[in-house]
Design a protein around this nucleic acid. Structure first.
Length: 256
DNA sequence: ATGCCTAGTGATACTAGA
């Protein structure tokens, strides 16, 4: 079973790329982030025509997450617990083929320090609290998406330029460390401990051509899935397509 | 240190991204 995560940076603006990628990579499940569209503008017809069921949590202009699957999706919840006043659409959770899948878009948090960074850290703590419950629920769980976290200096082309950035600040990495301490497996880094792996290249300065990237989109698995990992990778070529997202799709294969 | 580029909104420069 192939599961992917992809920050599409505009589900309508980049719909041709999304459809082309679905056709070529053909994941069984795809978690999408940054839809940048309200619920009523989700391109359901095109996604169904591509062979996928879908659930989504949209928002005008910003954020927005979705789960696509070739098999039926049972929605578990939308939004993270812990703040009923949170207006950002950044989390959706479902069960597919007996797998619990959380699809998340963690706040960017720049500029830091400041209110946006405070929001990032508060949201992060809510995620950690929820992840703790998921980890121990006795089911196989996948927690994936755009974490907006550079876990180590190995995951960024020039670490010294990012030390004050919200994606790499000590508080951010410490929060990711607290999440990982629950026992989660970071699939890409576990399979490739020493490789340079990037999932994002910004649009500036020919970052993709120079491979000046970041690894910020992650796949975390709980203990029941740890021994089921078959393969994983980044569909890097998609980042080179015309009118593409600044992220590349990340995928894993599980033997279930 | 800054802007480099891009999407969305709405019709103009702005916010936001990372």
């Amino acid at each position: 079973m192939k599961i992917a995560t992809y920050n599409v940076n505009g589900v309508n603006g980049h719909l041709p790329v999304l459809l082309k990628w679905l056709q070529t990579s053909s994941p069984d499940v795809a978690c999408l982030q940054e839809l940048k569209a309200p619920d009523e503008k989700f391109p359901l017809a095109a996604i169904e025509a591509a062979g996928y069921h879908a659930i989504w949590h949209g928002q005008k202009s910003w954020n927005g997450v979705a789960i696509l699957s070739k098999t039926p999706i049972i929605e578990r919840q939308r939004g993270l617990p812990g703040d009923p006043d949170d207006t950002h659409s950044r989390y959706i959770e479902a069960e597919v083929n007996g797998l619990v899948i959380g699809c998340l878009y963690l706040p960017n948090g720049n500029p830091a320090p400041g209110p946006k960074f405070d929001y990032k850290m508060t949201w992060f703590q809510r995620l950690i609290d929820h992840a703790s419950i998921l980890y121990d629920m006795g089911k196989p769980v996948i927690l994936t998406g755009d974490y907006n976290v550079i876990p180590t200096e190995h995951d960024v082309y020039k670490p010294e330029r990012w030390v004050d950035d919200a994606l790499f600040r000590p508080e951010t990495r410490a929060a990711f460390g607290r999440l990982m301490a629950q026992g989660w497996t970071d699939v890409l880094r576990t399979l490739y401990p020493d490789e340079t792996i990037y999932t994002f290249w910004d649009y500036f300065r020919n970052a993709f051509g120079r491979n000046a990237g970041l690894r910020i989109d992650h796949f975390l698995l709980n203990q029941p899935l740890r021994k089921k990992i078959k393969a994983a990778g980044v569909d890097k070529e998609v980042r080179g397509w015309e009118k593409t997202s600044d992220h590349g799709p990340v995928w894993i294969e599980l033997k279930l």
